[in-house]
Amino acid sequence: MIKAAEKVYDCLHRERYRYTLGSAVDDGLFTQYADNEAFRLSLYDARHLLPQARVTFRIEPQDGSFLINGAIGLDYVTITYLRDPRMQAIRSTQEAILARLS
């Protein structure tokens, strides 16, 4: 579920939102984007780089229309949307996916 959605960036080319979820991010999010042909999921162990010691991830569709950034164990994700005519529809779809997470 989405507890809060906050717009954190807005420019000519893109919008970015931070979605606070009802629970910490785990594999449940990744299964929503498990179609390898449609999405690319990459995990990056940044425990040696970030002060908070995170395993970070990014999920991007093949068409490059949005980008999800986050870290395992946090209770929020950020999604950046490319500003084009499909943006509102794409945003609604992603928010529906996040809303379905337990």
């Binding site: 990056y44 940044a46 490059g64 229309s65």
Partner: peptide, 21 residues
């Protein structure tokens, strides 16, 4: 560029996404 992806140039140099973005 207006794409969401990180720099193509840096990616081709093998720079990890966490740095690139």
């Amino acid at each position: 560029t207006s794409a969401l992806n990180e720099s193509r140039v840096l990616r081709s140099m093998g720079i990890a996404p966490l740095y690139n973005q």
